[in-house]
Amino acid sequence: MKSKTIKANSTETIIKEIDKATSDGFKPTLAVVFSSIKRDWLSVINVLNKKEITVFGATTAGEFIDGDIEEGSIVIMLLDMNPSSFKLIFLETSTETTLEDAKKLGGIGKETFTNPAFIIATGGIFIDGEQIVDGIMQGFGEEVTIFGGMAGDDLIAEKPIVFTNNKNKDNALIALIIDEDKIDVRGIATCGWNAIGTTKTVTKSEGNIVYTIDDKPALDMLMKYLGVDVKQDNNTGIVAFHNSWYYPLQLERENGDTVIRATRFANSEDRSLICTGSVPQGAQIKFSLPPDFDAIETVVAECASIKDNEQQQADALIMFSCVSRHLSFGALMKEEIEQVQNVWNAPMVGFFTYGEYGKSKIGTNEFHNNACCVVALKEK
């Protein structure tokens, strides 16, 4: 399977690059498109439609391609994957129907291939990522390969969008279902974020809203222990909590694994924290501090651990990296991306997300925040 990556900061240029990439006899069947919300990605889709190329797309909070980090651009990976090896599904959803819609997707995968893998992207701001993962697994009926990310909108936090050839929406789920009997799909979700302090208990929560920690208002606990503040407008209502990218919660799973939960919004009236994924009542948690350089080393080592041997390569890499990593690492983010790509020595496309889907080194499929999720594809 052959893959080519292209990028541009204007619609006109990206269209020229698509024509250039396909001028030598290369006939892609699939385009992975990650675009800034500011770019005219609809025009790009029209060009890909004319070439009869299936589109898996999402808006971003920043893009990267191979070793280059972009902002306000469009990045594309073109692949000549056999059309019989994949199926593209687009499902509209809502906060009320997320679980059932994800179950439907799991069932479609089971009906389509004996051994499917799901590469997914979700739009919207308030979709519970954990229900996406749980729903797919329930619909499929057993453990299955799931990797992906939540779309972004350049940190506006209003309307991240996922799109395919003739459909686009914020509250929606898009899935590239791949036949693992024909395409090797392997990946890992890894983080490297450091926990601090003692373990605490979520004493009241509902879904992705945490009301109290150790019987104290969750927002007050976070502000007290981490010394951070929340900008409040007249002390009423739900406010964006941008510092949450740096100070997420770490949920401790029974198997020893940890899952990160960013607290994207705070409610200044009831002093609750609104997370991007479910936080069960009774969960054991720790607070976190921004990562240091060791986090990059951890990510690179864990990405290398999924290879069968050092010589193993891939045809293509797709990377979903939380925007918090970019905000925290700054210029060092380029080094993480380059080192991960060098592990596999393959073309890479990716974007900075509002959340990630995948399996950690010791865990099961989870919805993550502040993680790096890498997917390697190799035709068998």
Rank of each mutant, 00 (worst) to 15 (best):
N9M: 15
S10R: 01
T13C: 08
I14F: 13
I18V: 10
F26Q: 05
W41I: 13
L42H: 14
V44L: 03
K51N: 05
I53E: 02
T54R: 14
F56N: 03
G57C: 03
G62E: 09
F64R: 02
E70Y: 15
M77F: 01
L78A: 03
F90L: 01
S94K: 02
T98V: 09
T98L: 08
T98H: 07
E100A: 09
L105T: 05
K110A: 07
T112D: 01
N115Q: 06
F118S: 06
F118L: 12
D128I: 07
E130N: 05
Q131S: 14
Q131D: 13
I136E: 06
Q138C: 10
E142S: 15
E142D: 15
T145I: 13
I146T: 04
G148E: 02
G149F: 08
D153C: 10
L155P: 06
A157H: 05
F163H: 04
N168Y: 15
K169N: 15
D170S: 15
I177N: 07
E180R: 04
I196G: 10
K200G: 07
I209G: 05
V210A: 04
Y211K: 15
T212L: 09
D214F: 14
P217E: 08
P217S: 07
L219Q: 07
L226H: 04
E252F: 14
E254P: 03
N255W: 12
N255S: 14
T258S: 06
D270C: 03
R271D: 05
G277L: 07
V279N: 04
Q281M: 12
Q281W: 05
F287P: 10
A295H: 09
E302K: 08
C303Q: 02
A304V: 00
K307F: 01
A314L: 08
I318D: 00
S321R: 00
H326Y: 11
M333K: 12
K334H: 14
Q339N: 09
N342D: 10
W344Q: 01
V349P: 03
F352W: 11
F352E: 06
G358K: 00
S360Q: 09
N369M: 04
C372E: 11
